[in-house]
Design a binder for these strands. Structure first.
Length: 224
DNA sequence: GACCAGGCACATC
DNA sequence: GATGTGCATGGT
């Protein structure tokens, strides 16, 4: 019993620190306005295209698809593979990503007949399970879709998030996706707008700090 | 010219 | 279960 009280106390302290870190990051970087997309469908395609890729490259691919008026479920479905490949080429890994996009579209039309609202309105655990069954959609891509397209309180773990939390001593190096996600979500309020902004702020921080040296001069979290 | 970027699947041990 | 590898463009 005493052990459990200690654990709970430690979790409360960490929760306060994590919320304090959020406040400092928000103050330093400002609102990140994620996800940079006009539609929910655009979020889904962007989530696949940005796998291990700089967003600036993804933006070009998105623009190409828009220029083809193909950034809709039907548009992608009806786009011949060579044109899809050509459009998403700037985002890199284009052969694999085209297959992944088509995998998604195939399952989406087969199971949900192109009804995006119904699809995204599925219970969160059900939706996540269906997404993970699609070859080419892993935990991070699925959770990005859950949070940024479906508006569910699911925290996205990515390379930046892990790196920041490891550098600041919260997580052990080599921690797995599910474990890191559970750790975080047990300690902060399950709030969509908080998760939305916090994840984007981790990325913003990770782009400039927490890279090579344990102590980064000028880090907005330096005072913690 | 090396290095990195908002992962994932697959092979191998 | 852990570890290694291929996938590819564009910016620094």
């Amino acid at each position: 019993m005493r052990m459990r009280q200690k654990t709970t106390l430690r979790m409360r302290i960490t929760r306060r620190r994590l919320l304090q870190a959020y406040a400092l990051l928000f103050e330093h970087f400002g609102p990140q306005n994620w996800w940079p997309a006009e539609t929910q469908f655009e979020v889904i395609i962007g989530a696949i295209l940005t796998q291990n890729t700089a967003w600036s490259n993804v933006a070009k691919a998105i623009e190409n698809l828009k220029a083809l008026h193909a950034l809709t479920p039907e548009g992608i479905r009806d786009l011949p593979l060579p044109r899809l490949l050509n459009a998403i080429r700037p985002s890199g890994y284009y052969n694999i990503k085209a297959a992944r996009i088509q995998n998604f579209i195939k399952v989406f039309f087969e199971r949900h007949h192109g009804d995006l609202k119904a699809f995204l309105d599925l219970p969160a655990d059900h939706l996540r399970k269906e997404l993970l069954e699609i070859r080419g959609i892993g935990p991070e891509t699925a959770d990005s879709i859950l949070l940024y397209a479906a508006g569910r309180p699911v925290f996205v773990i990515d390379a930046y998030t892990v790196r920041v939390l490891v550098r600041h001593g919260y997580l052990a190096e080599g921690i797995g996706y599910d474990e890191a996600q559970k750790w975080f979500m047990k300690r902060v309020p399950l709030d969509v707008s908080l998760f939305n902004e916090y994840h984007a702020l981790f990325v913003a921080l990770g782009k400039y700090y927490c890279k090579s040296t344990p102590q980064c001069h000028g880090c907005p979290l330096e005072s913690m």
